[in-house]
Amino acid sequence: MLNKLNNIGDSAIICDFGDEVNQDINNEVLKLFYFIKKQSKLEKIKGILNCAPSYNKLIISFDLKKTNSKIVSDFINSSNFYNFSFKQEKKEWNIPICYDFEMDLTKMSRELKLDKEEIISIHLKSTYFVYMIGFVPGHPFMGDVSKKLFLNRLKTPRVKVPAGSIGIVEKFCNIYPYESPGGWNIIGRTPTILFNSKNNLNPCLLSPGDTIKFKSISKEEFHSHDHG
């Protein structure tokens, strides 16, 4: 349930759905996200610039020349977005992963008291839900990782994590779209391009609300993958 609305600065509001992080709450966030996008497209509400969903919050940024916090808040409070249906927007993906590119499996195996094959098989079993995309373009925050694989961040983050690296921390799994610094436990790498700035229609592969199954591939398959 939407708990409260607050301004964040003078040209955005934050819609707070409570402190918990789970798929039900995230679904409510996404419902409001798609609802605002649609109403904005239909010009039922004007001046919306961006909607940024996260685990349990939605930030709506607007053009202060065209609207303000009160107008946007009143619009949300007076609308019945709970009944809004957005199921058609969700996609299911198979993302290849090559576990040979792991960087932390030995450490994970020691900490979790599981052998590497078990870790891989547990990781492959789950279906992952995309809670949100962000930090950098195309970067998904997914869950939920099996409780058997719960781990903290690395004590010292790496200066460089290669693009495509797949990591886990607590109940979350991510994919680094670009080479970047990072503190997640790296269990493999995907050749899939998550953000393609040459694609003017669909630059971002995944959307919040999508689901993912990983598919294990060999090094050879990884290298033969078309990098576009």
């Binding site: 909607c51 995309i133 962000g134 930090f135 195309g138 970067h139 953000f195």
Partner: peptide, 11 residues
Amino acid sequence: RFGLQHFGLPP
């Protein structure tokens, strides 16, 4: 560039 923050792009 607006409308892409949910894909990780700031304005």
